[in-house]
């Protein structure tokens, strides 16, 4: 599904990614771990085409397409979704209008007509239930006055509505209490299929418990320095990152 080769990227003139290689196959869930500032969020933002991040070298192929040539919106239409670490407030743009605009843009991209109103409302209702988001959130501005937990739930709700092929969860678990975390993780798991994949950035063992990832990668100083299964994630939870950094330095 996704193939990242020798990816170099910088933000505000500073090189953050220094040659990332990563392959994610259909139906796989990969967890990305690493110390603060190692480039996890940068990698996420580069994948979704945030214009603040500049790719200086390397390639990203997504289902055979050169991702770097696509605009952020076209990447979304091709099936890439990111659950933001800090979802933005957009006062005055209601959730309903926001979702309608997103869905219709995707339909237009594939040459389909706009979604009929009844179908749209029915779908919103179904997906809301999946993450336990109340109806009144739909008439509020996007994330306007939402608590931290509600914002994260809202991200998974949007993911459910947009049905992406590849999802990036950038610390979706941070700031959530145990119950909210379970709701978010359950929502995510329900959306998993053999065709959909995900890259999950997390610091917490709980997320590993819930998501049962296929692979764990460790990003240090802009490079993936260690890879393994979920067991690696638990080891990091226990031992921290220093031993990995030492391994890298000794190599």
């Amino acid at each position: 599904m996704l193939e990242i080769k020798n990816l170099h990227a910088r933000v505000e003139g500073k090189e953050i990614l220094k040659g990332v290689n990563l392959c994610i196959g259909d139906g796989e869930v990969h967890v990305l771990m690493g110390p603060n500032g190692s480039g996890k969020s940068t990698l996420s933002h580069v994948l979704v085409g945030n214009p603040k991040y500049e790719v200086t070298e390397g390639s990203i192929t997504f289902n055979g397409k050169n991702l770097l040539e696509l605009s952020p919106e076209d990447r979304a239409h091709e099936g890439i979704f990111m659950s933001f670490q800090a979802p933005t407030e957009i006062p005055g743009v209601s959730m309903t209008n926001f979702m309608r605009a997103a869905i219709n843009a995707k339909r237009a991209y594939f040459g389909q007509d706009q979604i009929p109103a009844a179908e749209f409302l029915k779908m919103l209702k179904e997906k809301r239930k999946l993450v336990g988001l109340d109806a009144h959130f739909m008439s509020r501005g996007v994330n306007e006055g939402f608590s931290g937990g509600e914002r994260k739930r809202n991200e998974i709700f949007q993911m459910a509505v947009l049905e992406p092929l590849f999802s990036i969860l950038d610390e979706t678990d941070s700031g959530l209490d145990v119950d909210a975390l379970r709701i978010v993780a359950d929502g995510f798991n329900m959306l998993r299929t053999e065709k959909t994949s995900a890259m999950v950035i997390t610091h917490y063992q709980k997320m590993l418990d819930y998501l049962k990832p296929d692979f764990v990668h460790v990003l240090v100083d802009g490079r993936i320095v260690k890879e393994g299964t979920a067991a690696l994630g638990y080891e990091i939870e226990e031992r921290g990152f220093d031993w990995i950094k030492e391994e890298v330095n000794n190599a």
Partner: peptide, 17 residues
């Protein structure tokens, strides 16, 4: 950018804002 990530074209996103 948040809106564009959800697939809303830039011109449309500007308009909504």
């Amino acid at each position: 950018f948040y809106m564009r990530q959800r697939g809303i074209p830039e011109t449309e996103a500007r308009l909504l804002l």
